[in-house]
């Protein structure tokens, strides 16, 4: 697969148990080390292309997640990491869990696992990169057609 740019990712803990978060960090450190593919972790949403979210999102976190998402420039891809983020997982029945990232944001890629394994997370990121390219193309076409009109 050809990657047209180095994707930067941002990670946010949306009410998870921490298990998936440390696995996300493990992807960025030696042994798994996605930095060798040019993938960088950034804390600034304005620099990020890919948004990795873990956890089932609670009421207090929902506005934070939405705000982070809105600050990211287009095109952007949202990856839900872990079963919690996919549909609430083991915490689905908790009174304070909304039940998955897709209750607040449009999610593009779901990474399963409790905790999600680094291999699975990397796979998710690779798919996100492909999707990012597609979105970019669609976006530029849109711009061209809107100019012509």
């Amino acid at each position: 697969m050809k990657v047209s740019k180095s994707p930067w990712l941002m990670h946010y803990d949306g009410s998870s148990c921490n298990g998936c978060d440390i696995e996300v960090l493990a992807c960025l450190t030696p042994v798994y080390d996605v930095e060798r593919f040019g993938v960088m972790n950034t804390g600034n949403p304005k620099h990020a292309d890919i948004f990795l979210i873990t956890g089932g999102i609670n009421a207090q976190n929902a506005p934070v997640v939405k705000q982070l998402y809105s600050q990211m420039p287009n095109p952007k891809v949202v990856v839900a990491v872990g079963v919690c983020a996919c549909n609430g997982g083991i915490f689905k029945e908790c009174y304070n869990i909304l039940g998955g990232v897709d209750t607040v944001l449009p999610v593009d890629i779901y990474v399963p696992g409790c905790a999600a394994r680094p291999e699975a997370i990397i796979d998710g990121v690779v798919r996100a990169v492909a999707l990012l390219d597609e979105k970019k193309k669609a976006l530029s076409q849109e711009q061209v057609s809107s100019k012509e009109a």
Binding site: S16, Q60, C94, N96
Partner: peptide
């Protein structure tokens, strides 16, 4: 309160 899930109450379920 950003990570409060309420899992103590899960004992009921």
């Amino acid at each position: 309160g950003f990570v409060h899930r309420g899992l103590e109450k899960l004992v009921e379920k």
